[in-house]
Design a protein around this nucleic acid. Structure first.
Length: 220
DNA sequence: CACCAGGCAAGTA
DNA sequence: TACTTGCATGGT
């Protein structure tokens, strides 16, 4: 079976098993971006605590955060871990947004997707996954997001090498799938859902895995 | 106690 | 270029 059909079949199986995931869990595009940075190698639950702290301090906005001292920001996002590093990264993005788009995400959204991707990657603290998450979930661009779960799930099911690089794995999806924001949004969210429940780093709960296969391989 | 979570950059050879 | 290490809280 060619890759295009397999990838669509995986998506259908996941969608039937879990249904729509409603990503990204946030009230605004700005909040999506903060979450994308805060969730780097960090459980979403801890990110929620940090976001809640920012909301309770009435500080979850471009204007408030651009004025906030870095030390103060670090204290508020403490539950998300790596708080000194992440406070700096959040500030880096905010400064970028101020300098290039006057703090206006709508203005940023008008730019070409690949131009935006290069700009985001030039910010210290924003790598490929964070950049693509921002493009897809905050700016509604049709960009496929790859993460540790994506790599783990597809390598364990014998689809790709386990150390396949980000761009290669991403191209696999973008070549095979129709370039639809809605599809990319749901597909990535479903892979994360599957990963959380069945494909943690050390454990692999098969054959309960919705993708099937007692040996951890795709049964398609 | 050990291990992990929706990464990334900096240091080393 | 190709590894390795630091960053840090909270759940299992």
């Amino acid at each position: 079976m060619i890759e295009k059909q397999r990838l669509l079949k995986v998506y259908e199986k996941l969608y039937r098993a879990f249904g729509p995931q409603g990503w990204w869990p946030a009230d605004t595009a700005f909040e999506v971006i903060l979450g994308a940075i805060l969730t780097q190698s960090t459980s979403w639950q801890n990110v929620e605590r940090a976001i809640t702290n920012l909301k309770n301090a009435n500080s979850l906005s471009f204007k408030k955060l651009s004025k906030m001292k870095m030390h103060r920001l670090a204290q508020l996002i403490k539950p998300a871990g790596y708080y000194n590093v992440k406070a700096k990264r959040l500030k880096n993005f905010i400064l970028f947004l101020k300098k290039n788009y006057s703090g206006d995400l709508n203005r940023m959204k008008k730019k070409d997707t690949l131009v935006l991707r290069r700009q985001l990657l030039s910010i210290c603290g924003i790598g490929p996954e964070t950049a693509d998450s921002i493009l897809l979930y905050a700016l509604q661009k049709p960009v496929f997001v790859v993460d540790a779960y994506t790599r783990r799930i597809f390598s364990r099911h014998g689809f790709v090498e386990k150390d396949v690089d980000y761009e290669t794995l991403q191209r696999l999806f973008t070549r095979a799938l129709p370039s639809q924001n809605r599809l990319f949004n749901e597909y990535h969210a479903l892979l994360v859902r599957l990963g959380k429940e069945f494909c943690k780093k050390t454990k692999m709960k098969c054959p309960a895995c919705p993708l099937g296969g007692a040996m951890g391989r795709l049964s398609l």
